[in-house]
Amino acid sequence: MNKSMIDLTPLTRATRWHPAELAFWLLPVAGYFLLQDNLVLLTQIAITALFCLSLDLILGFAGIVSLGHTAFFGIGAYAAGLMAAHGHGDPLLGLLVAGICAGIAGFISSLLVLRGADLTRLMVTLGVAMMLYELANKLTPITGGVDGLQGMEIQPLFGSFAFDMFGKTAYWYAVGVLFVMFVIARRLVHSPFGLSLKGIRQNVGRMPAIGAPVNARLAAVYTLGALYAGIAGALLAQTTQFVALDVLSFNRSAELLLILVLGGSGCLYGALIGTIVFMTAHHFLSDMNPEYWQFWLGLLLVLIVLFARDGVMGGVRRLGALGKGGAKA
């Protein structure tokens, strides 16, 4: 009977796939045919996009500022890498195990992260990542230490698609995983759980008063974000057949934060678009001395915070609003 009382379509509008979204997901297909020589780069973009998506879940949607999100990326990478190096080279099994390991680590650290206020969270997220870095560094016999983990043997995907030297299989594998994980995240965002996360981000103090167990929700999304990051790490290990100690570095966490705010946090496409913009820029500037690159990164961060806080997606939205305003006038 309520159906007649008001129009409920605004509530469900966002759940339907917008044509622009479909167009967006044609990009990877177009990329495959148009940029055959750059498949390695495109694979990297897909992996980083998944990693960035995982940070978006915990930062953009749950509002937890993490300085050490790479901890879970690293756990996933080493988990998948070690599996493949010890004869369990099935890629999907590797992904699964990596995701579970990272998820468990995420759950355990969420117990610590959620105990404190902002400052404590910064300390814990950073501390956990640095601790793992030390650990991977010290456990040379297992992880290869600074030389990195090598000697992986990845079996063909689904038993039939071998990872070729042109990176075609790797590319479709990474893009496919990204797409599946994206669809799951998209459902989650539009579910009651996703709505309650928005509530937590907008007014954390009010949520308990409507009966929401805030910490349980945050722990759940933190765990999920960790799992996503672990899968991204596993993808990197499997597609490059190498794990560098650098997967656990602070710079990677910081860079990821930059990518996310560049794209616009709290919006799934922000994570993807930020990654595309950033990685492309990095590619074209890759001849640059790494120190200069770091300088420009820093400058970019400062400028974004001061002048363009809502990132690319914010710009797009403002353009959209302008367009609408113009159409009305």
Binding site: A254, Q294, F295, L297, G298, L301, V302
Partner: peptide
């Protein structure tokens, strides 16, 4: 927000590291 402050100061850190290198 604290996030903005964090991002901003990380930016400064990166610039300082690059500057010190240089």
């Amino acid at each position: 927000t604290h996030l903005d402050q964090v991002l901003f100061s990380i930016g400064l850190v990166f610039m300082s590291i690059a500057g010190a290198h240089y």
